[in-house]
């Protein structure tokens, strides 16, 4: 276990190092500097600004400074908001993103489990078909389309929910729904497939033979065993939420990381793009590591060994 953990943590750092390096050099390939009104500035002013961002140094030195900075928790200065540290920018925008992501995950997973379980129990009935249609729609309708539709029909037209902004719980409902669709669909499909298998296994037959109630069987025996492999879904779901958050936060003007990321992309704010990239990768790597550890703990059949597979 210890050896395994050390190995995984080593790979985590290796991954992040590669991401940081590739990102850095990709961004160096691109045109553009933080000098927005280049023509109006004198040579000394330009030099001063370049020096402020450390762009006067040779590229290899910039690279080492950048990598060194990451270890100190610094991700450079934003081009867009002069003087603002990227790490501060990310930190101040983490709250809304985390809240939305968390809510969407909870809503999506709970509804997904219910839908999936209904589908499995009532296999090949209208209820199953309805659950399947709902879950496949969750995959087929892109989050940005869903977000726009929710915003218009449940926000603007009916006035039930605030259209955009970030001023309290009511403002989180629509973006949460828009984000929750994809985890809901993934969970429902996963649970259904898994539970169909579980429901035909011997111990379920035994439980039936013992005369347990249908609910008792589903809740105590089938669902619990289906939930274990669900842990492996957390990584992909988190990645999907990151993707979704970029557009959903943008559409609902949520001051989160995703919204910042899109803005930075559109105005070529390279330090912020790099910072958010590294942050997203770190988050996903950590989640994947946690997933594996948790999985090893709750399912003793899985042994965490130091030799890869």
């Amino acid at each position: 276990m210890r050896k395994y953990l050390l190995k995984r943590i080593f790979y985590l750092f290796l991954t992040l190092f590669i991401v940081a390096t590739v990102t850095f050099f990709l961004m160096k390939l691109m045109p553009g500097t933080p000098l927005q009104n280049e023509a109006k500035l004198t040579a000394t002013e330009k030099a001063a600004i370049l020096a402020q961002y450390g762009l006067d140094k040779p590229v290899w030195l910039q690279y080492f400074i950048y990598i060194g900075g990451i270890f100190k928790g610094s991700l450079g200065l934003s081009f867009q908001f002069s003087d603002q540290a990227v790490s501060y920018l990310i930190g101040s925008r983490m709250g809304p993103s985390m809240q939305l992501g968390g809510q969407a995950l909870v809503v999506g997973i709970i509804l997904g489990i219910i839908l999936g379980a209904i589908g499995a129990i009532r296999k090949d009935t209208w209820a199953d078909r309805l659950a399947t249609i709902l879950s496949i729609l969750g995959i087929a309708v892109p989050s940005f389309v869903l977000a726009i539709l929710l915003q218009y029909y449940l926000g603007l037209k009916t006035g039930w929910f605030p259209v955009a902004g970030w001023e309290g719980f009511a403002y989180t409902i629509l973006p949460t729904l828009a984000l929750a669709a994809s985890p809901l669909a993934e969970t429902a499909r996963f649970i259904r497939t898994d539970m169909v298998d579980v429901l035909s296994s011997d111990y379920i037959e035994l439980a039936k033979a013992k005369g347990l109630s249908k609910f008792g069987i589903v809740y105590h025996h089938a669902l619990r065993n289906s939930l274990i492999p669900m842990v492996t879904l957390i990584g992909p779901l988190a990645a999907a939420l990151m993707t979704g958050s970029m557009v959903v936060e943008n559409i609902f003007s949520v001051p989160g990381i995703g919204e910042q990321f899109v803005k930075s992309i559109l105005v070529n704010d390279y330090p912020t793009i790099m910072g958010v990239t590294i942050f997203y990768s770190a988050l996903l790597c950590l989640l994947l590591l946690l997933t594996d550890i948790v999985y090893g703990i709750i399912d003793p059949r899985i042994r965490l060994s130091g030799n890869g597979d």
């Binding site: 990645a239 990151m242 994947l288």
Partner: peptide
């Protein structure tokens, strides 16, 4: 195989979206 599997492992722990955004901007 061991080396190639590590490559896949590293690649797949980078969010797909992030790579795409980088490629598309770069």
């Amino acid at each position: 195989d061991l080396f190639m599997q590590r490559v896949i492992e590293i690649l797949s722990s980078i969010p797909q979206l992030v790579v795409m955004v980088l490629m598309a901007t770069a």
